[in-house]
Lab assay of single mutants.
Amino acid sequence: RTVITEEFKVPDKMVGFIIGRGGEQISRIQAESGCKIQIASESSGIPERPCVLTGTPESIEQAKRLLGQIVDRCRN
Rank of each mutant, 00 (worst) to 15 (best):
I19Q: 11
F17N: 05
R28W: 06
G45W: 05
E6T: 10
Q62R: 11
C35A: 12
S33W: 00
E24I: 12
R49Y: 03
I26Y: 02
V71A: 06
V71N: 09
Q62K: 13
E58N: 07
E24D: 10
I60P: 00
K13P: 09
N76S: 11
V52S: 14
P11D: 09
E42H: 14
Q25A: 07
S41N: 15
E32R: 11
P50K: 12
L66C: 06
I60G: 00
K64W: 01
C74I: 10
R28C: 04
G45V: 08
Q69C: 08
G16N: 10
I70H: 07
P47R: 09
E7I: 11
F17S: 12
E58C: 06
Q38L: 09
I70N: 03
E61Y: 07
L66A: 12
A63V: 02
V10T: 02
T54S: 08
Q30T: 06
G20D: 07
V71E: 09
I39D: 01
R73K: 12
K64G: 01
R65V: 14
R1K: 14
E61C: 08
I70A: 15
R75Q: 12
E48N: 07
L53H: 00
T56M: 04
T54M: 08
E7W: 07
K13L: 04
C35G: 01
R49N: 05
I46D: 10
T56A: 08
I19G: 07
Q30L: 02
E61T: 13
Q38S: 10
Q69K: 11
E32P: 00
L67H: 00
R21A: 14
S59D: 07
I37E: 01
G45C: 07
A31I: 13
G22I: 08
T54A: 06
G34E: 08
G16K: 15
V15C: 06
C74K: 12
K13D: 08
R65T: 13
Q69Y: 03
C74L: 08
C51S: 02
Q30P: 01
T5W: 04
T2Q: 14
C35R: 01
S33Y: 02
I18G: 03
G55K: 00
E58A: 12
S59Q: 13
I19R: 11
D12H: 05
P11L: 03
I70L: 12
D72W: 06
I60W: 00
Q25H: 08
E42T: 11
A40Y: 06
K36W: 04
V52G: 03
S41K: 15
E32D: 14
C74W: 13
G45L: 06
E42S: 12
T2L: 10
E6V: 10
S41P: 12
S44M: 10
A63L: 01
G68F: 04
V10G: 01
L53Y: 00
L66R: 10
F8P: 01
C35N: 01
E58M: 06
K9H: 14
L67R: 00
M14P: 02
A40P: 13
K9Q: 14
G23Q: 11
E6S: 11
F8H: 04
R65S: 12
R1Q: 07
E32N: 04
F8W: 12
R75L: 11
P47C: 12
Q62M: 13
Q38F: 07
Q30F: 02
G16M: 06
S27V: 07
I60C: 08
S41E: 14
E24L: 06
I60T: 03
K13Q: 13
G22M: 06
S44H: 13
L67K: 00
G55E: 00
V71C: 08
L66F: 04
G45R: 10
Q25K: 12
R65N: 15
I29R: 00
R28Q: 13
L67N: 00
Q62G: 10
G68W: 09
F17H: 12
T54F: 02
Q62N: 11
I26C: 03
G55W: 00
G20I: 01
E58G: 11
Q38M: 07
Q62T: 13
F17T: 08
S41A: 12
R65P: 01
T54N: 07
I4N: 08
T2M: 12
I37T: 02
R1S: 11
K64L: 02
R1T: 15
L66Q: 09
R65C: 07
A63T: 02
R75N: 06
E32M: 11
G55P: 00
G34L: 03
G20V: 01
I37F: 02
I4M: 09
R75D: 08
E7S: 13
V10A: 03
D72C: 05
E7A: 08
I29P: 01
P11G: 03
S43E: 10
C51V: 14
T54I: 09
I46C: 15
G22K: 14
T5P: 02
L53C: 04
G68Q: 08
Q30E: 15
R21L: 10
V10I: 12
E58S: 10
Q30N: 02
S27C: 05
G45D: 13
C35P: 01
I29A: 03
T2A: 10
G22A: 11
L66P: 00
D12P: 10
S43F: 07
D72R: 11
G16R: 12
T56K: 04
A63K: 00
E58K: 15
P47V: 11
G22L: 05
A63E: 00
S43H: 06
K64P: 00
A40G: 13
V3C: 08
A31Y: 08
R1M: 15
L66G: 05
E61L: 08
R28M: 07
V10D: 02
C74R: 14
F17D: 15
I39W: 05
I37V: 10
G68H: 09
L67G: 00
L53D: 00
P11E: 06
G23N: 10
C35K: 01
S43A: 09
R75K: 15
Q30I: 05
I46F: 13
E48M: 11
R21S: 14
R1H: 12
G23S: 08
K36G: 06
L53E: 00
V3E: 12
E6P: 00
Q25E: 13
V10F: 10
N76R: 15
S43P: 15
S44C: 09
E32F: 05
R49M: 04
G22Q: 08
E48R: 05
P50T: 10
A40R: 14
I29H: 01
G45T: 08
S41W: 04
F17V: 12
S41Q: 14
E58I: 03
Q62E: 13
G23R: 10
T5S: 08
V3K: 14
L67Y: 00
R28P: 01
G16E: 14
T5K: 09
K64S: 02
